[in-house]
Amino acid sequence: MGKSLAILGAGSWGTALAVVLAQKGHTVSLWSRRRKLAEAIKTCGENRRYLPGVAVPEVIEITDDLEKTVFRAEVIVFAVPSHAFREVLRLVKPCIGDKMVVVNAAKGLEEASLYRLSQVFAEEMGGTLERYVVLSGPSHAEEVGRNLPTAVVVASVQKQTSEYVQELFMLPTLRVYTNQDIIGVELGGALKNIIALATGIAEGLGFGDNTRAALMTRGLAEITRLGARLGADPLTFSGLAGIGDLIVTCTSMHSRNRRAGIEIGRGKSLAEALAAVNMVVEGVRTTRAAYRLALAYSVDMPITEQTYRVLFENLPPAQAVKNLLQRERTCEIRM
């Protein structure tokens, strides 16, 4: 039996989720902060701004009325950028009932507090996470919306809650796994964007597959180090939210972070690169937050550090590569 779902955020990911969840027979409402975008999606039958070429069925309610969107919902899916998560959560907080499940599909860290988004949720909602689920994994909206085979993971502190969402989201072309390591799933989804920026920068400099493989492998090592320090299960980073998402984000031109990195490697400033991508690049804010976390917890994250210096201290990208290659000798496997 279909459920009533409110999807908050009519970007590419929110739109793709609305499309596939409606296919399963759920009653889906898609909220856009901007009325003009909501009207354009209804008029065109697709989200030409964020997900062109993917038909948005008429059965999906498109609205800019937030209260109307969540009032009837049994499940709320947050598909807003991570920096907007707290703001939107505060707006809908009065409407979130005790039995309502909240699914967060954003991948990032809150820059001011350095919180994972589940920590933001717990702080705003009085410490409870029993009805909170994070959705992550290698899942470009452009492919999910076209029903190309995809596997993702959902994590919650409550096994029965993650299994409930697993059943809601499972489709013939969308396989959903469960995981109880909410810390690792959140960190994997957020931190891989930093490495995607770094591999994009290397590509923009003209480097090849060896460089990308080195950055991805060593990037996974530093993601795992920070994750373990913050309480995650290191094995989580060998799964969909870790290496799976890292692979797709570092190798696909659907990746905004990779594309922004390429522009920077070719000589553009951060502002120029973001303008060229013309969508939210989550890895930029995440780099700043992760750099501060690494310092606070004394975790060695050399790729994150050099990416930070390129983005925010005007370090030439070529010099960042030299800095990485000329570090002191060390062993490969360490925590």
Rank of each mutant, 00 (worst) to 15 (best):
M170H: 15
S82W: 03
Y291T: 08
V70E: 09
E163A: 06
N179L: 00
A228D: 10
L240K: 04
D245W: 02
I262G: 11
S29Y: 08
K42V: 10
L171T: 12
L295P: 14
T304V: 03
G145T: 00
L91G: 15
M125H: 14
D98F: 13
I247P: 07
R212F: 01
L37V: 03
G200E: 07
S29Q: 10
T217Q: 07
P57W: 00
S252W: 12
I223A: 02
E74M: 10
M170S: 15
K3T: 14
R86M: 05
A275R: 11
V157K: 12
N147C: 14
V153W: 03
P302E: 02
L325H: 06
K99R: 15
N323S: 09
E282Y: 05
Q119R: 10
Y291Q: 15
T199Y: 03
G137S: 13
G231L: 02
S255P: 04
P302N: 12
K99C: 14
E167S: 14
R86I: 02
V20H: 08
W13E: 08
S162T: 02
R329D: 15
Q306H: 09
E46A: 06
A141I: 05
E167L: 08
I194V: 14
N278P: 10
R292L: 12
M170I: 07
G127E: 14
L187R: 02
L187H: 05
A260R: 06
T43C: 13
G14C: 01
V28T: 05
Y50V: 05
T150S: 10
R258N: 12
P149G: 11
G219W: 02
L315D: 14
A190Y: 04
G25K: 07
L315Q: 13
N323C: 13
D245H: 04
I195R: 03
Y164S: 10
L21Y: 05
A141M: 08
N147K: 09
L148G: 13
L168N: 10
R212S: 11
I333F: 11
A290G: 09
D233S: 06
